[in-house]
Design a protein around this nucleic acid. Sequence first.
RNA 1: GCCAAAGUGGCGCAGUUGGUAGCGCGUCGCAUUCGUAAUGCGUAGGUCGAGGGUUCGAGUCCCUUCUUUGGCUCCA
Length: 651
Amino acid sequence: MNITLKDGTVKVYAEAKSIYDIALDISEGLARMACAGEVNGKVMDLRTVLETDCELNILTQKDADGIRTVRHTCSHVLAEAVKRVFPNAKLAIGPSIDEGFYYDFEADSFSREDLDQLEKEMKKIIKEGSRLEKYTLPRSEAIQFMKEKEEPYKVELIEDLPKEAEISFYKQGEGFTDLCAGPHLMNTKGIKAFKLISSSMAYWRGDSNKAQLQRIYGTAFATKDELNAYLEHLEDIKKRDHNKLGRDMKLFTTVDVIGQGLPLIMPKGVRIIQALQRWIEDLEDNEWGYIRTKTPLMAKSDLYKISGHWDHYKDGMFVLGEEEKEKEVFALRPMTCPFQYYVYKNEQHSYRELPLRYSETSTLFRNEDSGEMHGLTRVRQFTISEGHLVIRPDQVEEELTKCLELAVHCLTTLGLQDDVTYRLSKWDVNNKEKYLGDEAYWEKTQGKIREILVEKQVPFTEADGEAAFYGPKIDIQAKNVYGKEDTMITIQLDCAIAENFDMYYIDQNGDKIRPYIIHRTSLGCYERTLAWLIEKYAGKFPTWLCPEQVRVLPISDKYEAYAMEVEKTLKANGILSTVDVRSEKIGYKIRESRLDKVPYMLVVGQQEETDKSVSVRSRFAGDEGVKSIEEFINQICKEIRTKEIRKEEQQ
RNA sequence: GCCAAAGUGGCGCAGUUGGUAGCGCGUCGCAUUCGUAAUGCGUAGGUCGAGGGUUCGAGUCCCUUCUUUGGCUCCA
């Protein structure tokens, strides 16, 4: 057998030599780092690719697909350890994931002590150096095998595989065999550095009606150094976590008796949201042709019955009163659509008036399940830059494009443009009853959105079952520091609700025509955006967003009067400023200002008072030298006006 | 909603087998009047998330509940 490696080396093996030995031979030169083979771009088990003559690229643990293989094998080692320590545990599934792996078991919940014990057992298994060997069984024998082993979840998995399939297994030493498609390492010794991270509950097959399993998360790396670096990284990102940092910086807080998902935005947080809101409202109204509405925060249930929310979304609404008891039942609004529709319906509209772009800084209420709330990113009351565009069918493309452009403009201004991904969120053809409208409607609207994304050359993914119940969406997704993804901005195309409200305009011929509606936001909801900004900038916001833009620091009490004078001038120019009048040393005041992440410190003493100047120290450049008050004000006002994002000083 | 873990002065933590709460930073006061990341000394501040129970006695044990965290499931 001839194996050609990517570097051109040809290895010739006698037929008698086992696949396992060939693999070991090849990988020996790579310090036992080999974990999988890549043939024609396809990642395969080394043992599979070695069965024929081929040109082979050996993947090592330094390769993304290579380390995935290590993690996958590590999940099998975990499963073996669990079976050794807790023989009654039943195996479910154990794949590799982005930064590690998990394995689900039917078992009692695992404590940290259990995980530590399992880690020890895993180390033993790795040290034993079990070979992983692959073999296949016909379907019926595979089922029989797992029945004998009393692994009901495995039986179910096999039963769901195609009838004609050969079922592959990996045997790991003498004690453990698992249903698996691979690929895997040749030997457990290939695992050099791993760690069990946490455990939690997970539903079998992700279905909350099915059995509750215990999931163990872990990770593995090529070297101990890489693993330690990753674990340190996990500690580091906690420092950016908006839920921690935002509270520490007194941007928001929560109070037990007020309730879950109802954060209190503190004065400093309000300054940031206020800056965002003023910017967005002016931007939309003055530059993008929006008109502003202000509509009620609640309505009678009748409204939501027309919109379809009562049928499709009632569990998510805060309903005031019981239908059986009261004459009128109200509900807090979970969205603004129907309210703005009635603004439109207040008068008859000509085709010449469209598009009409309504926008509202809109507070919404959604009764999220108790386990869903998180910091500022998933709350029960939030405020969104929400808008609805009433447009003619021939305006769909242009207006959708503009909505997308506005969103990109907002993201770019905030410096978040490279931190988002775009998604075309479609309906789920297998769950049609969850949606309004028929297949033709969905195909048409989804197609229009796809065209625009392609036209604008925006890289995007498509996702089934992520649409709103009334129409498909462009969702602009962002990830938090832990990698969890949420929607930041959404642009939705709809005419299903418009139908329900009998929206129309009058065309050239005097006919009533159904308009399209675009539901959209320009920068999403303020709470969530604040959360992303906190994490993006680790609390060091661009100056225009800072709740405290300048802190004046007198060297001693003697210069307090001059410091107050400087502050007064700054405030007169609309700059958010304070004076630190405490009888502390200048070094101490500077340290505190830095910890509070104030962008500009103005140190004033004898010299500055004499020539009406300030000594500028910034977060961005350290000592910026002595400047006249006027010069500094010009500089910072320009920075605020242009919403400049200055590069932070390296520390 | 589900499975777990956690909750002690503003923040970070300690609190041994149940015996009546400590420490550091911060706050406040006094002294210091200082030139670019921490001046010194002193003071106050907690019914240990809430409610109930066991006990002579509960921060410690039990039950209920609220909130927070990590996941799962949801997410217009």
